[in-house]
Nucleic acid binder design. Structure first.
Lengths: 230, 230
DNA sequence: GACGATAGTGCCACTGAGTGGCATAAGCGT
DNA sequence: ACGCTTATGCCACTCAGTGGCACTATCGTC
């Protein structure tokens, strides 16, 4: 059933890597990031600390691997997809959706653990944001090479806006109830991208009094993360 | 001329803090971030390492202080400014401009050093992005408390888009030639915010051949960072 | 199935960031 | 001058991350 058999040697390496990721997520989640030492992690997986650092650049890195896998897939898809003259932002959205689709089973639950850890561990969040930032720049390089783009600041801006939509979608998806699914994430993504245009003109209405007024603006797209289209 | 005299004790603390920042920027720039130890820095400023960590949370933190000062001013301005029913994005832009104006002399050159360091030091960039992210969340809290906002994902999105514009402006400003000035940064900021709406509909035109075509879209706002309005 | 070549791994010593605790000194009010 | 508060210095300690080298397991080749 497997279309290709990976070189028998790399499988071991990959297994070690995945064991490190899973065990790290487990330990970090149960004991806390700061209260888990790398010695502990390596001892559990039964590898040396030296091996750990050949697989990951830092303690934070191992726990952010799931998200990074998505961004790597994103860049891969960006390199091969034939653009059809659509708006850049729509292109980004579609490539992100494709990247999500390409993630293997079990990815969703891992990335949720990863993001929840990042929410409570500044250094992990920082590491993730940096990786994302680097990915954005790489994406811009690829785009400039493959399509005609204005040479001003707008392509970069469009990319960053797409990333912002992604972040918002991811956060909503992560904090959503129930078993995390690819479909729910896709829906959240569509939702976030759809909300971009109207968010530009969103008005900040001054409060009439300092008591909380339950009345809110109601002219936006659906606000929940429920999959309106799976 | 100074409107208020700060408590004579804090001045010493502030002086130490500023000495640490300036010396850190100098050492990091000349010797490289990784090749400068905290012992070295503390030895130069003649304080103990313990004192350093009472002023800054990490080695990265000290070098990012100039940017963080801006964000702190941003939050302060956000807390006091009376919104007038303008679009949220315009409000953010104006508050950012006000925050830039509020920065003291010498800030510009410091922040340029800081940002250039961040460009070559991943952990510094990561730290800066994380601080920015936290600031954005804090800003959203303040906004929700002060103005009526839709309770969907759009306010957050608008905020993130504003931050994206800021980042683009900052990067262009930093890489600009000549002595960095507040006016140039303000102009870059206006420029970036102005470019947001058109960047949404920016088309990714497929290349006709794989040779580079110099023809590019030309319908955007001015692309350079020259101060069209100081 | 034995052969070097080429990985990936384990072990060990080491640097340096970051922390906790406690004594000390420097501002501050009276 | 008197305590009270607050910042600082000093010291020992943990742990993330690195460099070097020996070792072992895979791979290609015969």
């Amino acid at each position: 059933m497997t279309t290709a058999r990976p070189p028998l040697r790399e499988r071991k390496k990959r297994r070690t890597r995945e064991a490190l990721i899973d065990t790290a997520l487990e330990l970090f989640t149960s004991k806390g990031f700061a209260h888990t030492t790398l010695d502990e992690l390596c001892d559990t997986v039964d590898v040396s600390k030296r091996t750990f650092f050949r697989n990951f650049v830092s303690k934070e890195d191992v726990a952010m691997a799931p998200t990074q896998d998505l961004w790597t897939a994103f860049l891969g898809e960006l390199r091969v997809r034939e653009p059809t003259g659509e708006p850049l932002l729509a292109l980004l959205r579609d490539i992100l959706l494709a990247a999500v689709d390409a993630m293997p089973d079990g990815w969703a639950s891992r990335v949720v653990l990863s993001r929840k850890l990042a929410q409570t561990t500044p250094s992990m969040n920082a590491h993730g944001l940096d990786f994302c930032d680097r990915t954005t720049r790489a994406a811009l390089e690829i785009l400039r090479d493959r399509v005609d783009l204005a040479d001003d600041l707008r392509p970069r801006l469009a990319l960053d806006i797409g990333v912002a939509a992604f972040h918002v979608a991811l956060e909503r998806w992560v904090s959503g109830a129930g078993e995390p699914s690819h479909a729910a994430l896709s829906a959240a993504l569509r939702n976030a991208f759809e909300a971009v245009p109207t968010s530009l003109t969103l008005i900040a209405t001054p409060r009439v009094s300092n008591t909380h007024d339950p009345r809110v603006q109601q002219n936006g797209p659906v606000s929940s993360t429920n999959p309106s289209r799976g």
